[in-house]
Amino acid sequence: MIPAAFEYHRPSDIAAALSILTEYGDDARVIAGGHSLVPMMKLRMAEVPHLIDLQDIGTLRGIDVGADRIRIGAMTTQHDLINHDALTNAAPTIRETALQIADPQVRYMGTIGGNVANGDPGNDMPALMQCLDATFYLTGPNGERTVSAREFYFAAYATDREDDEILTAIEFAHPMPGFAYEKQKRKIGDYATAAAAVLIQRDGERCTGASIAMTNLSDTPVFAEDAAATLVGTAVDSAAIAAAIEAMQQAIDPSEDNRGPVPFKRHIAGVVLQRAIERAWSRA
């Protein structure tokens, strides 16, 4: 657990960070909370000759709950998300999800930006961001651009972010009222065996809108568009839920690991989705 030697950079604004990133190219990486990258460096699986710490860049922090949209700076920690009352009022699913990430020590350091930009299929926020239809803000040498969370993930650690870009913020509209993030894991601190993010809108006994995304059931988060569509217009009864689960099963592609074999993961995916839909429906 001894890393190779590296240079530590601590810029105080985005421009400075970008210039270091441009200067060192593939030899440089930005670090947010560091809870994925630093262990890999200490295990000598990742060699980062130039580490760019973003924590002094004040503009990357903060939560802005606007009238239409909610914007969260990339360096906002999970702990900050959990304890932000206005955010919890507007989008309680953020708090419910953040509380299921790792443990309190990690949540003091871990950031939402790091969680979504990392591209590890085990991260929880990416599926939630897809469920919320969030937009990611990326800044690079050619300025700022946006990309939808639903278009961002290609494969494990492969995302739409270019090596010389920094993810600066995420933004999403006020979500549907019914929400749930249901996660099964082996123990505190573990990645999900399977997890489901669900948002539901209801009008009386009819579902008028739904969004579903799944965590750690493929090499990317899985936005299960068809599964959500099966719920809309139904009374979210057991037949509708079964249809949604069936549609979700078509979208996921879990692989075997120490959490269990593929049939188990598929089964758990069904269980967590059912529970998430039921809870979200009851809250809608």
Binding site: Q184, R186, T193, R259, G260, P261, F264, H267, I268
Partner: peptide, 8 residues
């Protein structure tokens, strides 16, 4: 008796 083995 972890989760997947109990499930199995």
């Amino acid at each position: 008796h972890d989760q997947w083995r109990i499930w199995e």
